[in-house]
Amino acid sequence: MSERESLNSQLEHLQLRHVGTGHADITKYEWLTNQHRDTLSSYIGHPTFLSMISITENESMGRVRYNLLQRMVNPCGPPPKVKDDMQLDD
């Protein structure tokens, strides 16, 4: 039983420390946004990926880096409307 508690506490610590690992209440939109941002940051951080993209788009590496950074702001479009279930009916 203590092994299970240890694993749960390690998972909670990991989720608190790293934003992209998610938590029990994460929405599909938040999870997808984290995945897209991780992917875009990987492209920016690895010069070979950046070079490949710049060659295929026939753009300079600086322009590709700038475009990828701009896409990181809102990679999945605007967030979905949140339904407020807590409203009381009058």
Rank of each mutant, 00 (worst) to 15 (best):
M1G: 14
D89M: 15
I53H: 05
P78F: 11
T39V: 08
E30L: 06
T27C: 04
N67I: 04
Q70P: 00
R17E: 01
H23M: 02
H46W: 12
G45N: 08
I26G: 01
S9M: 13
L69R: 15
I53F: 08
L14Q: 00
L32N: 06
N58M: 08
R17M: 01
M1P: 09
N58V: 00
H46N: 14
Q70M: 13
L16D: 11
E57V: 05
R4V: 13
W31C: 00
G45Q: 01
K28N: 06
P78D: 06
M86N: 15
S42I: 10
S60T: 14
T33Y: 10
K81S: 08
P80K: 08
L32E: 07
S51K: 15
D89P: 11
M52N: 06
H13I: 00
L14D: 01
I53V: 11
F49R: 08
A24R: 15
K83M: 09
L68V: 00
L88G: 13
D84A: 10
S42T: 11
E30N: 10
S42Q: 12
R63A: 00
Y66N: 14
D89T: 15
M1A: 11
Q70V: 13
M72S: 09
G22M: 00
R17Y: 06
D25M: 02
P80R: 07
S42K: 11
L40P: 01
N74Y: 08
T39W: 00
E59D: 12
Y29P: 00
Q70H: 11
T56S: 07
L32Q: 12
S51R: 15
L32R: 14
S6L: 15
S60G: 13
T39H: 12
D38G: 07
L88N: 15
S2F: 10
L16A: 09
K83P: 01
S51M: 09
G77R: 08
S51G: 13
P80S: 07
A24L: 11
N8Y: 08
N34L: 02
D85E: 12
R4P: 03
S41Q: 10
K28F: 07
Q70R: 14
S41A: 01
Q35P: 02
E30S: 09
I26C: 10
T21Q: 04
L68P: 00
L69S: 12
Q35Y: 02
S60I: 04
Q70W: 03
K28E: 01
N58G: 01
N74R: 14
W31L: 02
L7D: 07
R71V: 00
R63H: 05
P47S: 11
C76K: 04
N67T: 05
P47W: 10
L68H: 02
T48K: 15
S6Q: 12
M52Q: 05
H13T: 05
M61K: 14
R71W: 02
H13F: 00
D89F: 15
S2Y: 12
Q15A: 06
Q87Y: 07
V19W: 09
E59M: 14
Q10T: 05
P80W: 01
Q10W: 04
E5H: 12
S2A: 14
L11R: 10
W31M: 07
H36D: 00
A24W: 10
L32K: 14
S6T: 12
H18E: 02
R37I: 08
V82M: 13
P80Y: 04
D84Y: 12
Y43V: 02
S9A: 14
Q15Y: 03
M1Y: 12
